[in-house]
Design a protein around this nucleic acid. Structure first.
Lengths: 205, 205
DNA sequence: CTCGAAACGTAGGATATCCTCCACTTGAAG
DNA sequence: CTTCAAGTGGAGGATATCCTACGTTTCGAG
């Protein structure tokens, strides 16, 4: 973790502590109140003044980045672990299950968090898909972006149902998985013409 | 303040015109800017003062209701038509396709709009499911709420992808449908213990 | 211990939106 | 045409959030 400002200068010990407290508070507040939560709430929870927040994180996006860093790292690790599994289908289902589990800890910000994290591991995602298709375990007409869409949709379902039914997304994921198998395959409408770009997904990175 | 409109009292002709203009403007603005759009924008687009908006629609929810009335009516008609189709599976797929199409006209507010409209036709939805299950065309462990979740998720996908890929949700829906068939069925985790309540879905009705 | 730079918190201006108040306008009944 | 309740628009107070200015406090090197 940092310890350095953007200019690469060393932070004073107390400043470093405050910076970490802000990132931790932001994670909690974003999860509880969504990504549009007032920055003042975050400063208050971190036990610092609002100016300290702005000094460390000039914009909401920089703060979001700091919060997302862990999530993205976790996402990365999950997809790597999935690729390391011998059986491609097991790897794929494991991947989807684990990132949904990860999202369910983000509560109100699950959907957007997942979208951003998902985009950042797109190459590995594509690899995961290709591998399962080569093994004949995954319908051949599935595009990696379809998986991205799937997680975005389930992310939203998590946001909506998590407060009163923590199992809803598991059922939904199970349904979706059955639709991914080659055995079930009926022709998909038509493949997407372009790949997702980050900004096309309506998220700031 | 007379609760004129609520009591069904007849409005003056000009007032009636303004009321209709407000509802139309609200539909456009909500679609373009989302359901949290400033009410002042709506008044401006309708060509009336903000007070007129508040007189006709005291709260955002009442305005949303007026806008949704058409959507809900359309949703209702779609589900009725689906029930009238002879083949249950054809009815079900037709229903899902048509409401997604409907949602894709709501742009930025597709997700929430669909959720609200879906909740309002829940009984018919349950009927649609039961009928297809009785015919053995739909996996038996599917709950009507699963369908609601599905549409919520696809509603979100529509919001995200509509600006640059109008076909994404069709692929996603096709995938989901393959997962709904009995042939593809693998046991779902466990059924939901409670039915969705309107407020539990995080929407104001 | 001393002291300057680094970091801090608070106060408050700017902006956006909500919602109400009130003096003016207008439809339509008689 | 006259009349007046129904209807209207826009000003402005209240509130929430963003972001900055500035005087005060604290770290840590010497």
């Amino acid at each position: 973790m940092g310890g350095l400002t953007r200019q690469g200068r060393r932070l004073r010990a107390d400043a470093e502590r405050n910076r970490a407290a802000l990132a931790a508070a932001a994670r909690e507040v974003f999860a509880e109140q969504g990504l549009a939560a007032p920055l003042e709430h975050i400063a208050k929870r971190a036990g610092v003044g609002i100016a300290t927040l702005y000094r460390n994180f000039p914009t909401r996006a920089t703060l979001l980045d700091a919060v997302l860093a862990d999530t993205i790292a976790a996402h990365h690790e999950i997809v790597q672990r999935a690729l390391a599994v011998d059986d491609p289908w097991t790897g794929l289902t494991g991947y989807l299950t684990e990132i949904c589990q990860l999202a369910s800890t983000a509560d109100r910000s699950a959907g957007q968090t997942m979208a951003i994290a998902g985009i950042k591991v797109y190459p590995q995602l594509a690899q995961l898909v290709a591998r399962a298709q080569a093994a004949g375990q995954l319908r051949a007409d599935l595009a990696p972006t379809d998986l991205l869409c799937l997680t975005v949709g389930i992310g939203r379902i998590i946001e909506v149902t998590e407060p009163f039914d923590q199992g809803a997304w598991r059922r939904q994921l199970a349904l979706a998985l059955d639709g991914l198998r080659p055995a079930a395959a009926h022709a998909l409408p038509r493949p997407p013409c372009e790949e997702f770009g980050a900004q096309e997904c309506g998220v700031d990175l």
